[in-house]
Design a protein around this nucleic acid. Sequence first.
DNA 1: TAGGATTTGTGCGTATGTATT
DNA 2: TAATACATACGCACAAATCCT
Lengths: 248, 248
Amino acid sequence: MMRVEPAAEKPADEGARGRFERIYQILRTRICLLDYEPGSRLREEDLADEFGVSRTPVRRVLVKLEAEGLLRSMHGVGTIVTDIDVSELAQVYELRVELAELVGKLSPAIIDEALVAQFRDIRARCDRLVAMRDPRLFSQINMEFFHLFTTLTTNEPLREISERLYYQTTRIWLKTAARLSSFDELLQNEFVIFQREVADITEAVEHGDLAAAGHVRRAHIAMSFSRIRRAAKPATIRTHLKTQYSED
Amino acid sequence: MMRVEPAAEKPADEGARGRFERIYQILRTRICLLDYEPGSRLREEDLADEFGVSRTPVRRVLVKLEAEGLLRSMHGVGTIVTDIDVSELAQVYELRVELAELVGKLSPAIIDEALVAQFRDIRARCDRLVAMRDPRLFSQINMEFFHLFTTLTTNEPLREISERLYYQTTRIWLKTAARLSSFDELLQNEFVIFQREVADITEAVEHGDLAAAGHVRRAHIAMSFSRIRRAAKPATIRTHLKTQYSED
DNA sequence: TAGGATTTGTGCGTATGTATT
DNA sequence: TAATACATACGCACAAATCCT
């Protein structure tokens, strides 16, 4: 179909649907970049003021974000950003791992030079970024790479679902990374690992091997969760790094 | 303190959230049972009158249904029930097939007697139903069986997503079945096949073999789509039933 | 325990966009 | 082409629910 991106840069004229999409994207990005931390409250009126509209269109967006599990509105209380515990996170990752592999198997996209160029571009920027150690900037490229990866399949529902699950988990990754910032070597490790993932997948795409790309991605998502899990455990356990997963 | 239990069955008094869920379920069921046919218009005011509320809470529900792809609201035109063409349907089925298998693999539920009893109950009712040839009633049991099948996994995101995709496609199945009602033997065939699927999966569950249940389900979903596809083709092709799937 | 402050939910009139005559 | 009918989108005032003092 080759649908064009809806709202790239149209701040001047936008219909109701365009405005909805714009506000939705902005809020979702803020949630996932921890501008709104899990547990924090979003006041409808504040948002309405900020975007220069009334509460009504804002509420439309909030309903959608709630349907996606990023928010939870409660009468008389407020609209709070959701947080997810490790067991929920495990389920989402368990599924993301499988979906990543499916991206490499179902309805493969045609790989042209333009697509390969996009991968190479991100790879290059990723290499440059690795020295900066900025979790937020890193998260943005991570997000960008995710979107690029999903274009490897033309199965639209698969892309939608992968996107939804990604946005549910990526902020937890960033949250963990932020806690890790005191352990510079661990954070640096995350960056290097991601850099390698991007490199590996880029090369797989260059060879036209989507299945390989899917397998690489799958492995990295699984390992990423494994590291998050380890980082989330109390320090006493983190000391002896032997695999000791008796609980659960 | 004195916190009241939220809501088990309280049609008399219900909070905002309960009312939202109630209206949402009703509308979704109507869409999937073709009470609202694809392409038909839903007037917000009519719905508001029917449920005894103003348009505002109705619009909340419509936004959610639109996010799930069951509706599409257009400014100045109306809110219409979506229809999906064969290529979109193919993508959804392609994914449903994989997810069905995952239900048998990821986070398996513990199989107790109560669960097995539920499968046996549906199986018995299905056997009784097969002689009635009522597409609508059939669709309801089909839906019920789907929900029961998803309880085989405790992976909540997987259940949610399977459910969403199911509701996107089941009405298309029913639509096709309705067109088939003139071909009694074909419709009867659908019933018998489903009866067999329920029997096979029930037996797999009785043996505690969730993987087998997943594989059976996977195969049936794939074959179901194959039949829908054939039924959707012009009659000239339907005459010679040799597998002739040259296009894509 | 009670009451006020705060926030989301609801109702309804109006604005805006679309299709038809 | 213009006017009219009609649907959704929006804005605002008020009701209901929760929290905190």
